[in-house]
Amino acid sequence: MHSPALTHQMNKLYSSFFTDTNTFDVVDLDAQETALSAYEQAIVLAPREAILYYHKGQVLEQLGRIAEAQIAYETARNLGHRC
Rank of each mutant, 00 (worst) to 15 (best):
E40W: 08
G57D: 00
M1V: 15
A5N: 03
L60M: 06
H2M: 13
S3T: 12
N78H: 14
K12W: 03
I66N: 08
I43Q: 01
E68R: 00
I66V: 08
N11T: 04
Q70Y: 00
T19C: 14
H55S: 04
A69R: 07
D28A: 13
H2C: 12
A31N: 12
N22C: 01
I43T: 00
V27A: 07
T34H: 13
D30G: 06
A5V: 01
E74A: 04
T19L: 15
T21P: 13
S3V: 12
P47K: 03
M10A: 12
S37R: 15
N78C: 12
R77E: 08
G80P: 06
A38D: 15
Q62G: 12
I71G: 03
V27L: 05
P4I: 01
A31G: 09
L63Q: 12
D30E: 05
R65W: 10
E61D: 13
L36R: 14
I51T: 08
L29V: 08
V59M: 03
Y14S: 11
Y54N: 05
V26K: 15
I71S: 04
T19Y: 10
K12L: 04
E33R: 10
V44C: 06
D20Q: 15
L45M: 09
Y73M: 02
H55Y: 06
E33N: 07
I71F: 07
A42H: 08
M10D: 11
V44R: 12
D25Y: 05
F24G: 05
